[in-house]
Design a protein around this nucleic acid. Structure first.
Lengths: 230, 230
DNA sequence: TTGCTGAATTAGTAATAACTAATTCTATTG
DNA sequence: CAATAGAATTAGTTATTACTAATTCAGCAA
């Protein structure tokens, strides 16, 4: 219940994971947390109990958890740290978008608030990380943009790639290789039913068609730009 | 005994502390380690046992410990990390010499070797940290310069301040205020007996005399420049 | 309503690394 | 050479946070 107890790195990981699951799924279940953190479910139950006793989240047994205001605040602090670090490592130290996540994951527990603010200042207070994820303000305000998964963009639409998941380095390397970088514009040419692949035609000097599997497509956040009338 | 087991942050702290005590005192006693790490002596005994079982150091009970080759290698890796971080934070992010130590102390456990090498490259492979301490090479080679504590510089000599301890931020702020920065040149004017203070005359546009207490003086590493014949 | 399935929880254990209190050793001193 | 002070160690405990195995619960289907 104490307001100013330092959180352990484990606690920080839980809060951030729960925040990210809440954004995607609304409520965070034990098994989802366990999967994100690569931890056995009983370990999650135990930790969740401690976190709810500290007032960081509310636990409805057998249902799931929700961050309290205090918990969300701490989670957003970690999200800010992670994303500022990713931008810094990419812009100032030559990291690629597929390798920053792992480094930031460790550093986010060790940096001071001061260092993060110095980095943010040196970067000109960036609004998005290298994967297009929005960066919360120091005060814990975040603007989650409304994006549509590529797997759900209507056929014939023009769309722009705005955000990708940073979890899997292999996936990021593959995307770069396909030409699917942030800001890439394309038309959705076709989509196979039954969770089948999506075909897109990338705009550019020589337009290229690419086929993207359903799972990958559902991890790509797109901004719709209206129908192609050509 | 396994060669490639990751070391815990605690282990890394012990090895670095022991290395630094060895440099100063030749051999590291339990109580010295306890003091540097701000830990109770029995905790040190316990950890030392584990570390010697892992082959990182040799423990002669009731006498003290010595790093093995493997232990020294790991210690120097931490020393390199710490010092590169200090230079980076100072040169690239505007930290002062009195505030970098604490930040580096946390970061040294979290950064990857790759990040350290990227920082070293961005800095042009610096040889000294902001407090004048030499930076070991990636391969674990360090050149400990031969310096004389200010408390032992003969009266009448000219000397240059080359290295200061980074442990105490207050002390560093005080030194800066006195005008005792790295590279500062001065003549030793007087020294009181019985561990008394040292009086130095700083060179510069308007030479100034400063009195430095014995304890502080013994933490300042000086390079002798010969007698003043003026 | 009963039973099943999968998710979640409880129970019990282990590793790491700290602590205090009590004991033992080393080295010095008379 | 015995007494003793101070350093070091042993003994026993605590807090975190993970694990596996066993049990319990929620929600759906028959």
């Amino acid at each position: 219940m104490k307001a100013t107890t330092r959180l352990s790195p484990s606690t920080e990981d839980y809060l951030k994971a729960i925040y990210e699951i809440e954004v995607q799924q609304g409520t965070a279940q034990t098994s989802a947390i366990a999967e994100v953190l690569a931890i056995a479910p009983p370990s999650v139950t135990g930790m969740v109990k401690r976190l709810s006793e500290s007032g960081l989240l509310e636990h409805t047994p057998y249902k799931g958890v929700q961050l309290t205001r205090v918990g969300r605040r701490s989670a957003l602090r970690m999200v800010r740290r992670h994303r500022i670090l990713e931008v810094y490592l990419t812009s100032k130290l030559g990291y690629d978008w597929d390798s920053v996540h792992e480094e930031a994951e460790r550093l986010e527990h060790a940096v001071s608030d001061e260092l993060i603010e110095r980095m943010a200042l040196a970067l000109g207070h960036p609004r998005y990380d290298p994967h297009g994820a929005p960066i919360p303000s120091k005060e814990g305000v975040i603007e989650e943009p409304v994006l549509v998964p590529l797997s759900e963009v209507p056929i014939g639409s023009m769309a722009e790639l705005r955000q990708v998941s940073d979890r899997d380095a292999e996936r990021l390397r593959y995307l770069a290789q396909l030409g699917l970088r942030l800001g890439a514009a394309f038309e959705i040419v076709a989509r196979q039913p039954f969770r089948g692949p999506v075909t897109v035609r990338l705009s550019g000097r020589l337009p290229k068609e690419q086929v993207v599997g359903h799972e990958l497509a559902s991890s790509l956040g797109c901004l719709l730009r209206g129908k192609e009338v050509g």
